[in-house]
Design a protein around this nucleic acid. Structure first.
Lengths: 194, 194
DNA sequence: GCCTTCATGTAAGAAGTTACATGATTGT
DNA sequence: ACAATCATGTAACTTCTTACATGAAGGC
């Protein structure tokens, strides 16, 4: 195809390339570090997608030769890539299809669990999400310190980064709250509520 | 395989069958209504999975003949199904792999959007999630009224249903909060923050 | 006449994960 | 010696979605 449209993964990649030119390898690590909490992709998915984006004219690449390490292909977003991304941003997402959470599924069958193991699971998950929350709050602090007022300038990519991070923070807070509540109920229940 | 293990979808099905015997068709509608906010599956995925579960000895079925409508296969969880489910519940989930949210991805590229369209998108999504929250809170109220103290008896399936629902409520509250915050920032920004 | 509900399946394709494959440099 | 980082790809597989296929009963 030569059209100006792509998959959701494609838009995730374009969103990163709209900020800076990157290699496939760098994109993969940015995926983990920057947008990892709401979209992930392995390099095995990224490389083919970059090829398709280039076929569609949304990105281009040039080879950067390096002496000490392997050469790399640095990808840059094109005007038509910017156009496609800008259009996609405000299109309503087609229903929140993929909301899959295995822990909530486990909660749904919690009545079958051994109480001590169940408490351990939810205390453990509470801790996992508390750590993640702390991590996000550290990034938040860094953004506020380094970027100052830019984080509230809606025409700046910094605002967009900050806004996405806020979703992560709110989500983790809720997750911690929920895990703690479940664990407390289980602990209270252990005493024996007939 | 004749072993006592299955996929996550398999456990989702077992979680429903642990409460009541159901046909594939009923399972599909329960998936939408009961566990739809944290796990979904179409009938095209459910029917083959039921066959696999039966091959693994985790469920059995018997045909119920009906005069006014098509005959159906009613599936029942087996002892070995209960055992597999009970074991799985307290096993730690293998990292929260699938946390994909297209709206957060859009937020990440919001700086490229037309401000009015962006506000419209987030006000719209705020409304969508507010409605969903209201729906969940209605179910919560129904559970509290109909089930009374059972919802806090951790050995009861009603507690498990209530706990899963709580995750949905907390999540939607956070989502609404975030959408409103983003929309407010965009509206404030429209005036012109230099 | 047409749509919805009930009822069960298969087929084709898209999306995502895990594993295979290679190879240099730098740090422990 | 061993592992990690940088760097790019392919192959096989699982998972999930969309579409195809059929057919009766009941409501509008």
């Amino acid at each position: 195809m030569t059209e100006g449209s792509t998959t959701t993964l494609g838009y995730a990649i374009l969103g990163l390339l709209a900020r800076e030119a990157l290699s496939g390898y760098d994109l993969a690590s940015r995926m983990r570090a920057r947008v990892g909490f709401f979209w992930q992709a392995r390099h095995s998915q990224i490389y083919p997608e970059l090829t398709r984006l280039e076929e569609g004219g949304l990105v281009t690449h040039h080879v950067v030769e390096q002496s000490d390490r392997p050469d790399k292909k640095v990808y840059r977003i094109t005007d038509s890539g910017f156009a496609a991304l800008s259009e996609w941003v405000t299109e309503p997402p087609p229903g929140p299809r993929a909301a899959r959470d295995e822990l909530v599924l486990k909660a749904y069958s919690l009545w079958l669990a051994e109480p001590e193991l169940a408490v351990a699971l939810f205390r453990d998950q509470e801790e996992v999400h508390r750590e993640r929350l702390l991590e996000y709050e550290r990034i938040e602090g860094w953004m506020e310190k380094e970027w100052g007022e830019d984080i509230l300038r809606t025409e700046s990519p910094r605002f967009a980064s900050y806004a996405a991070l806020q979703r992560g923070i709110i989500n983790e807070r809720g997750y911690v709250e929920w895990c703690r509540w479940v664990a407390e109920q289980l602990e209270r229940g252990k005493g024996g509520a007939g």
